[in-house]
Design a protein around this nucleic acid. Structure first.
Length: 459
DNA sequence: TCTGGGGTCCTCTGCCCT
DNA sequence: TCTGAGGGCAGAGGACCC
């Protein structure tokens, strides 16, 4: 934090509403429209376009036809046949998200990203430079528009729950006749906050999903007002101690969670649903290598490593199983990760085939020996020289020797060739950085014969 | 008809150690 | 030596978020 920012915090006004929730309007759709203006004015669905894809985001025109996020794409197509279906491109959305984060950071250092398209801001130290909280909200809207040509809605309130509900109230609405513009900014003054809160349906609260909603409905709780009126013992009996006490507080407008600026993630994972259920063990081994490589690549790109490896399997009947193992030492390289993941998968019954496979790493820490990604021995600024190519071949050769040696080990991650493994991973990253993700893969990953090239390395 | 992907947090259970 | 209590940790699963 800079000295100026400390000065800003020192003049925080306790009467001001400190929390802003900023939420981009139909973010993925609008990014796609910037890329392809022919989509403007047409119903657009962004999401998985495959047989098992679902909707990630829908334009307000498509929402008017009943399309919403998480709906199977096939169903969305039936509801809105005129819609253009665009396959999600998260790298493009991440770029736009970074531009938006820069705008937020220019107002306050206290920014808590929630997703690519929304964040909480604590502006209690920004009033001297930018004015009152509502003035800051309007300033942000304009600045985001100027930087990205995208619209957002802003909620202003005394805490996160209220600010979140306020931003929803500020959003464009969907009517049968089509989309209608929203307020843009909604301020919930302290004097009106309970009335505002209690008028909402209980599922509008953070933490009330389908299961909790059913349990609350069972004790005649339908609105936040109902929730505030129900005795806490009854609430705890219905949804459990931690959840019950938290919901009781939220329903009374009490939410003292601070805005946490983003730190290192708790876990990094990659998972994929197969177009058809997978039974073949060789194919599965290839998928594990591919997923492990995607996770490893992201870990190394961010200078992270982790000790706990978890595999997730979804069966054709949608039941889920996870298996996890915590290692003595953190790992980050694809081969070690794939080795542990494969060992975990073999503990599961695979005879019925699997619909989805995921690999995750948790117990994350920042790597002690930073990855040489981008500065690896293989140059990325110029075409690999003959010497560098030779070095890669040597590294690969030694690495492959390590595979056969470590295959006997009961403790992947503790083998002696971790350094070689890391150098190989760095070399692969460097090659992908220069020539694209699809140009090179681990041998086992090549076993997959139906994967589209652009999905090979995940996002 | 079909139900994604990437996360976080909480609860319960079993194991190990004191 | 056995037993039980309690804490810490890991593993598994569930619920929820966008």
């Amino acid at each position: 934090m800079t000295g100026d920012q400390h000065d800003q915090l020192a003049v925080a006004d306790p009467d001001e509403l400190p929390i802003l929730h900023v939420d981009m309007d139909a973010f993925y759709v609008e990014v796609e429209r910037k890329r392809d203006p022919a989509l403007i004015g047409r119903p657009v669905i962004v999401g998985g376009s495959g047989r098992r894809g679902v909707v990630a985001s829908a334009s307000y025109e498509a929402r008017a036809a009943g399309v919403h996020a998480a709906m199977p794409t096939a169903q969305a197509r039936r509801l809105c046949p005129a819609a253009v279906v665009v396959t999600s491109d998260f790298s493009g959305y991440a770029e736009a998200s970074e531009a938006i984060a820069e705008v937020f950071g220019s107002v306050t250092p206290l920014v808590e990203p929630i997703a690519l398209d929304e964040a909480f801001l604590d502006v209690s130290g920004a009033h001297r430079l930018f004015g009152s909280s509502p003035e800051i909200a309007w300033h942000l809207r304009g600045a985001v528009r100027q930087a990205t040509d995208l619209d957002c809605s802003v909620g202003v309130a005394s805490n996160k729950t209220l600010a979140k509900l306020a931003s929803v109230a500020a959003k464009p609405s969907v009517r049968f006749s089509g989309p209608e513009p929203g307020l843009g900014v909604r301020v919930v003054e302290r004097a009106e906050q309970l009335a505002f809160l209690w008028a909402h349906r209980v599922e509008a609260l953070w933490g009330v999903g389908p299961v909790t909603l059913k349990r609350l409905n069972d004790i005649d709780v339908f609105s936040v007002g109902d929730l505030a009126a129900v005795p806490i013992e009854r609430l705890v009996a219905a949804v459990g101690t931690a959840h019950g006490t938290q919901l009781a507080a939220l329903a009374r407008g009490i939410d003292d969670r601070p805005v946490h600026p983003g730190g290192i993630p708790r876990s990094v994972s990659h998972e994929e649903t197969f177009e058809t259920d997978v039974r073949d063990p060789d194919r599965l081994r290839g998928e594990i290598v591919r997923l492990a490589d995607a996770v490893s690549s992201r870990l190394r790109a961010n200078g992270l490593e982790g000790r706990t490896v978890t595999v997730k399997v979804k069966y054709p009947d949608f039941s889920l199983r996870t298996r996890a193992r915590t290692l003595a030492e953190p790992i980050q390289t694809p081969r070690l990760l794939a080795s542990v993941a494969h060992e975990l998968v073999t503990r599961l019954d695979l005879s019925a085939g699997i619909r989805l496979l995921g690999v995750a790493v948790s117990s994350i820490s920042e790597t002690s020996a930073p990855s040489a990604q981008g500065t690896a021995g293989v140059g990325v600024e110029a075409a690999p020289a003959a010497g560098a190519q030779l070095q890669l071949e040597l590294d690969v050769g030694r690495h492959l020797g390590g595979v056969s040696a470590s295959a006997k080990s009961a403790e992947p991650g503790l083998t002696g060739d971790a350094e070689l493994d890391r150098r190989l991973a760095d070399a692969l990253d460097a090659i992908r950085g220069r020539f694209g993700g699809a140009v090179i893969s681990h041998g086992a990953a090549g076993l997959r014969d139906d994967a589209p090239g652009e999905r090979r390395w995940g996002r």
